[in-house]
């Protein structure tokens, strides 16, 4: 997957969690949580969806790396390079 595809994947998962999520004003290097009013419970859904869709096992200690859209893409790029 390219970086843009990974970005779309993450946004698609978030849209699935919250269909009213507003991506227009999203700043890609700022925490998703504050901007989209997500909590840690919603965050787990991102991890679980990545597992469901791409069989990715993301260990708990790596969850902080999914904080912003940019850090998600950085973290997922090597894991999804063949996807």
């Amino acid at each position: 997957m390219t970086r843009d595809q990974i970005k779309d994947l993450v946004l698609d998962i978030i849209a699935d969690i919250d269909d009213e999520a507003d991506f227009e004003t999203l700043v890609s290097d700022q925490p998703l949580r504050d901007q989209l009013d997500l909590d840690s419970m919603d965050f787990l859904d991102i991890v679980m969806e990545l597992r469901k869709r791409h069989q990715l096992q993301i260990p708990e200690e790596d969850y902080p790396q999914l904080a912003s859209l940019d850090s998600c893409v950085n973290y997922l790029e090597p894991l999804l390079k063949d996807a």
Partner: peptide
């Protein structure tokens, strides 16, 4: 969005 009821639905 942060209300317990809406978190539950999500």
């Amino acid at each position: 969005k942060r209300a317990p009821l809406n978190r539950l639905f999500r």
